[in-house]
């Protein structure tokens, strides 16, 4: 008897330590078992929370977790290597994706052009009937090239072409150039898609280069000295090409003047002002003419004054000194008397 009661007592003690697995809630919870998620829509008890915040939250969390685990036990379970595993259903909650949505594939240059112009791709048949050869010729492959050879056994020499020129060789060269160009464009499209920088091709052909290209070439060539073009002479009104910073040695994208203190800047400014003010004035015809007019006007005014003044002025004039030579102002007329004649 003793043993039995002891065991019972022990189990009772143990069970009192743990809470029951059943939890009462006013409103049923909403589960998303697959993502182990529970929504509790029951009212939040502010009174309990104020009394013992930590304890209340802990209780709430335990109860809800208990309910979630109860739900898990209702799922079909199986045993894998001594562990009980529940099979989760598909998740109901939509979670945002971790990584950004992949960008749509970038169009190639031709695709872009075709889209702009509304050009649609036409399906070509693999075989086409050749009237000249009287047989079906495939679109590509060795049979096609054979057919071409058969068809073009003779080529016309254009009217204004060099008669000694080999038209067949010319045709093969142009074809191979076309292929090379196509390959270059393909590679360029790949580079563009993968965001790889390709080195710029310099001036391709001086015969077809535009003035802009030439200007760029000059700008780059000038900077390509050991001192980065610091001592290169400039032509009057020469302009530097824009948009060539990437290929110009020593050029940075945005050139900023180095910061200097206010006093230094002031001195620099004063130097500039000095250089402007000390410029020798150009000979200005308009200006000299206007000056001439001014002096003439002044002269006539003084003469009029003299006439008006009459005798009084004359007397004063007599009293004053004789006018000295080479000090009087010339009244208009010729500038420069020329050679003195004897």
């Amino acid at each position: 008897m003793d043993v039995v009661s002891e065991v019972l007592q022990k189990s009772q003690e143990e069970s009192s330590k743990y809470k029951p697995i059943t939890v009462e809630k006013h409103i049923d919870l909403e589960y998303d078992v697959a993502s182990l998620l529970v929504y509790d829509f029951n009212q939040f008890n502010a009174q309990y929370f104020e009394r013992d915040a930590n304890g209340y939250l802990l209780d709430l969390a335990r109860d809800n977790t208990q309910l979630l685990i109860n739900q898990l036990w209702e799922l079909p379970t199986e045993r894998v290597e001594e562990a009980i595993v529940a099979k989760l259903p598909l998740p109901k909650t939509v979670l945002p994706r971790a990584k950004p949505v992949p960008k749509p594939k970038e169009l190639t240059k031709w695709e872009q052009f075709a889209k702009e112009k509304g050009i649609q791709k036409k399906k070509k048949s693999k075989l086409s009937w050749d009237d000249q050869l009287q047989k079906w010729v495939p679109l590509f492959g060795f049979k096609r090239s054979q057919a071409e050879k058969e068809k073009n056994w003779v080529l016309e020499v254009p009217q204004n072409a060099d008669p000694t020129e080999d038209q067949f060789a010319k045709k093969t060269v142009s074809k191979s150039e076309n292929v090379a160009k196509n390959e270059l464009q393909r590679l360029r499209n790949i580079a563009k898609r993968r965001n790889i920088k390709i080195p710029r091709v310099g001036l391709t052909n001086p015969e077809v280069a535009s003035a802009k290209d030439l200007q760029a070439a000059v700008t780059v060539a000038k900077a390509s000295t050991a001192s980065l073009g610091k001592f290169q002479d400039r032509l009057p009104k020469e302009k530097e090409a824009t948009g060539v910073t990437t290929i110009t040695p020593g050029a940075s994208k945005k050139r900023k003047l180095p910061p200097v203190s206010g006093d230094v800047e002031k001195k620099q400014n004063l130097d500039v002002v000095e250089s402007i003010l000390n410029k020798r004035p150009k000979f200005d015809v308009e200006k000299s003419v206007s000056k001439q007019i001014q002096t003439k006007l002044d002269l006539t005014e003084t003469i009029q004054d003299r006439v008006k003044g009459g005798r009084k002025n004359q007397i004063r004039n007599k009293a004053s000194k004789k006018p000295k030579g080479s000090k009087g102002q010339r009244a208009g007329g010729k500038i420069g008397a020329g050679r003195k004649r004897r």
């Binding site: 400014n269 004063l270 500039v272 002002v273 402007i276 003010l277």
Partner: peptide, 22 residues
């Protein structure tokens, strides 16, 4: 640009630009 600016100002105020700087 400083040169262009001062040349313009010099048309109006001549040597008085110095007064603006000093």
């Amino acid at each position: 640009r400083t040169k262009v600016l001062f040349e313009k100002l010099a048309k109006y105020i001549g040597p008085n630009i110095k007064q603006l700087i000093e």
